[in-house]
Design a protein around this nucleic acid. Sequence first.
DNA 1: GCGGCACGATTTGTATACAATAGGCGCCAG
DNA 2: CTGGCGCCTATTGTATACAAATCGTGCCGC
Lengths: 237, 237
Amino acid sequence: MSEMPKASKTDSKRRGAERDDAIYRAIADAVVEHRLKPGARLREDALAEVFGVSRTGIRKILQRLALEQLVTLTPRRGASVTRPTAAEAREVFEARRMVECGLIPEVVRRVTKGDIDELRELTRREVEALNSGEQSAAIKISAAFHERLAQLSGNSTLAEFVARLCSRSSLILAVYGNSGHAGCESHDHYELVQLLEEGAGERARAFMEKHLSAVESSLSIVEGADEVPDLYSIFAG
Amino acid sequence: MSEMPKASKTDSKRRGAERDDAIYRAIADAVVEHRLKPGARLREDALAEVFGVSRTGIRKILQRLALEQLVTLTPRRGASVTRPTAAEAREVFEARRMVECGLIPEVVRRVTKGDIDELRELTRREVEALNSGEQSAAIKISAAFHERLAQLSGNSTLAEFVARLCSRSSLILAVYGNSGHAGCESHDHYELVQLLEEGAGERARAFMEKHLSAVESSLSIVEGADEVPDLYSIFAG
DNA sequence: GCGGCACGATTTGTATACAATAGGCGCCAG
DNA sequence: CTGGCGCCTATTGTATACAAATCGTGCCGC
């Protein structure tokens, strides 16, 4: 709060929920794009200063992020970007397989030509980002692809759940991903759109299942050394 | 709740997250048990006085409830118990069918004799509550049954999602239920447990699907008059 | 030199005070 | 008598101030 207390002018103009939402998105995007890595601490004072609001407002946003499991709130220790455990990682992918595949038939039934075009556009941008070496952007677009697909089912409750799973997947990639390849093979997305356009529901469903399993097995999902290892079982009694 | 401004002594002794959690459960339970009906306003001052904390703490809890869609936060108008729309109601049941049925195979694989006993005990208590005319208790126990079942899959991410869907289902029952029967037929639960015990995975899955569909069709899911009716389509242009 | 204790700084947790806004009520004009 | 305007109250939104707790650091005793 000294010489340059506020964030950019455009942000400081906003009011109420709109402003909160902008801050929320700013932080969430930074997490999803791996600009804030799992484990990174998020001090309330620092965030408050950066965004030009008081700690009260920041706390509200951190609570929201915590409920979506993007950040972890440790009592008296503050907020940090969530570091998913190996078990959580497997759970998230199992959940995605169940829900995203289950949604496919309804998506095939409802998808329009315009939707197909939109999905192709996302795929194109994803490839473009990958070719430019913008891994962060690619990850975000890939998540957006899966989210958009889920929305096309018309069930916003399930779509929102998928969106949350995608965000968490991004964290999982950050922790368990082998650097060099960033999650989804973009050609998979292209092929998936093709199947959707052809109305091949069952094949699309099977492909989605294979796709998600492929992403999961491309990771190295093992407990890192820093995870609270049950010392009891290590040193026994 | 007039002459006794604070909550019970046991509650006021609590500290930090533990106390917040107690307040959260108190409100959530009241909503799930229909002691707070959809549309009921939740004034911050009133809640703060009842639970013996400041508005700050109450706001935190209301935010959490809002994210779980048990309460709706209208800017500058405050919090009220969510009144699910007809579309939301259908979405929730579709989501439950997909996830709860999808979980059944894994549940059958992992369920133990102890788990079966526990589920039977829940069913017994549900019947007991219904026979005593304690509809509120029956609703809560019924939700607990479905939640416990989901937990047995071992996937806590999906289990938590199911738990939320069950809470919302309670709200849906409050709005669209015909008074007289409270959601799940308890005999259904008994039969379901039987199938689980026998390890009849596919039959259990089919039964769960039928069960959820039966609950849904026992409701009168139509837009109430108070729902924001698109005046544009009514009065046309 | 090493282990333990205690103090200090940093950071979160909570309450209170103040500002802003929306809805209600009454008054005034036509 | 009716319709509209304006104040007023009740309630939420935001910031700040204060209290509590934890972690790191340095000192002292052994």
